[in-house]
């Protein structure tokens, strides 16, 4: 016998009655590796079963992203339909692409997350490149951090 509605509702017994339906993956994610070392991480991650995530490499300031099979896609087009962009970087070579992604995401209301892989001065440069645009920045991260983030976001 519980003495209040809250006490009853918070009990283990009542927890069993939470509506149990599968969570449909809702995030249409784009994962963009901005440099070669980040791309190798992206390639390994892409081998896992994801719901809607699409993986790209970028970094050259040509306005194009490349799918992992090499297919080139204009940046604007690649981000169409996305609601979260996760950018991976180990150094600042992709600064221009990060800025371009940031501008498009800002305009379209797409959430951005940056993952800076590794540490040291190159990573510092990557942080500086991503900071203005990433709603969330994971610093001194490794491949498992990226995996955890994408898994938690149910992409």
């Amino acid at each position: 016998m519980h003495v209040s509605e809250s006490a009853r509702a918070a009990s283990a017994a009542e927890s069993r009655f939470r509506i149990d339906v599968p969570i449909a993956p809702a995030r249409a994610a784009r994962v963009v590796a901005l440099d070669e070392r980040a791309a190798s991480v992206a390639r390994r991650l892409a081998e896992r079963p994801w719901a809607h995530a699409r993986f790209y490499t970028g970094g050259a300031a040509d306005g194009l992203l490349h799918e992992l099979d090499g297919t080139a896609t204009p940046l604007e087009e690649a981000l169409t339909g996305s609601d979260v962009v996760v950018v991976l970087a180990t150094e600042d070579g992709g600064r221009a692409t990060a800025a371009a992604i940031g501008r498009i995401c800002g305009r379209r209301g797409i959430t951005t997350a940056g993952v800076v892989l590794g540490d040291g001065f190159e990573a510092d440069d990557a942080i500086a490149a991503l900071r203005p645009y990433a709603r969330v920045l994971l610093l001194s991260a490794d491949e498992s951090d990226t995996l955890e983030l994408l898994t938690a976001l149910r992409v």
């Binding site: 809250s6 509702a9 918070a10 009990s11 283990a12 009542e14 927890s15 939470r18 969570i23 809702a26 979260v84 959430t111 951005t112 997350a113 709603r135 969330v136 994971l138 951090d145 955890e148 983030l149 938690a152 976001l153 149910r154």
Partner: peptide
Amino acid sequence: ESMGPIVDRTKERLVPADSGIIK
């Protein structure tokens, strides 16, 4: 406490702002 004694995390919808919790 309203989440129950042990919240069922399989039903969560985390967002990038939850990165501290994820980490």
